[in-house]
Design a protein around this nucleic acid. Structure first.
Lengths: 212, 212
DNA sequence: CTATGATTAGACCATGCGGTCAAACAGTGT
DNA sequence: ACACTGTTTGACCGCATGGTCTAATCATAG
């Protein structure tokens, strides 16, 4: 992954970086609107108003383009989350901030998330196995699981299975992007509120103002 | 949807019903193993040891085949859930049974669920919109939401938003099929246990033996 | 002006797709 | 023997895909 036809390393031309971001942006749009199967190189190029060859001039192939999109979006989302978590002290606050920031990023960049979901859940190698889904250990999930574990070790939380609870909460986060496109009336703010209270109840966090 | 080339109504020949179920079974296998894009008519036919034309002889097209698979699996799953719910009286018990039965069906028929997920999340019409995802109202979700609402109206539950809580819990159910294929060490029984306790906490169900 | 490298368009290609079609095969009643 | 229906095959078609290649364009340095 991550290899270009034109040299990427030293001298990214103005045109090159501009074209790359433009093509990635169009790819995201097409992926979000028409899904994985609708995101052909021809369609992406048409959207960008350029020839199909240009796409393959700046990306070594479709795999490279999709990898770059995933890498870019993951990077930006991860940065936002890391930044948000740094402002919180207690594990309980960190977890709430984690959930809030994830859904906030989705609210501001719905197409980006949809595109990544389309790629991750559909891109497969020639052997038929997923190209982006980590087989053994998912670092994103492991990170969140660690957050839960820290709160539990600090005695702040109730007894629960951090691994499986992490899966449950992350699924609630990940499903939101699908809801957002399927249901125009979906209220993301209300969903965030509900999910946050569920997370509080599920972790059994000790908060003075929350105990009923 | 649901139209065949050969007459389906009155006289389903022995060969016909046998072939149809065989083809659907192979389609499910291929979908579960190789995903939507890997599930070509040629591959399904190869798996069944028959010619591609036979598939199109018993199904009017690929859409018909995939529709039939979704219809079949949904029917069997729905039947199992309805049956399980009929044995429970209180809303709290019904909801627990709902979650348990969903995950139990997944445990016994993982390929069927994977296949349906692949179809539902990937099949799109010529206009690019999803073919199986209901745009406005999802009956599956609405049914579960109604269960939550009944428990709430009965005063058995805490205050929560039934619609959004239904989405959260269903997402936890739906994510399990993906985990099952991505992580061979995934412990579905432990996951079910954890999810059931989260559901209890989230609904705030009043149970004598559960209050801490 | 010219040479050079970056950039672009468009023709082209092999492959795989869903689907059609005519012909052959198998059984069964007459 | 015949016809008839159900069943199966393999050749074939039109189309879209990801990708290659050649030639033309553009900018800029000499």
């Amino acid at each position: 992954m991550r290899s270009n036809s034109v040299q990427t390393s030293s001298n990214p031309t103005f045109t090159e970086s501009a074209r790359r971001t433009q093509i990635m942006k169009c790819a995201i749009e097409v992926l979000a609107e028409s899904g994985y199967s609708g995101a052909s190189l021809a369609e992406i190029a048409r959207r960008a108003g350029i020839s199909k060859s240009v796409v393959l001039y700046y990306f070594s192939g479709k795999d490279d383009l999709l990898s770059s999109v995933v890498f870019d979006v993951y990077g930006r989302a991860g940065q936002a989350i890391t930044e948000a978590l740094s402002h919180e002290a207690s594990p309980g606050e960190k977890i709430a901030a984690y959930v809030r920031t994830n859904l906030h990023f989705l609210e501001e960049h719905p197409a980006d998330i949809r595109a990544v979901v389309e790629i991750v859940s559909n891109a497969r190698g020639s052997d038929g196995t997923h190209s982006f889904v980590p087989q053994g250990e998912d670092p994103v999930l492991a990170h969140f699981e660690q957050l839960l574990r820290e709160g539990q070790d600090g005695g702040e939380f109730r007894e629960f299975d951090p691994h499986h609870l992490a899966i449950i909460i992350r699924s609630a986060i990940d499903t939101a992007s699908g809801r957002l496109v399927a249901d125009p009336s979906f209220d993301l703010a209300a969903y965030t509120r509900e999910l946050l209270s569920v997370v509080e109840l599920a972790t059994g966090i000790h908060r003075s103002e929350e105990s009923s």
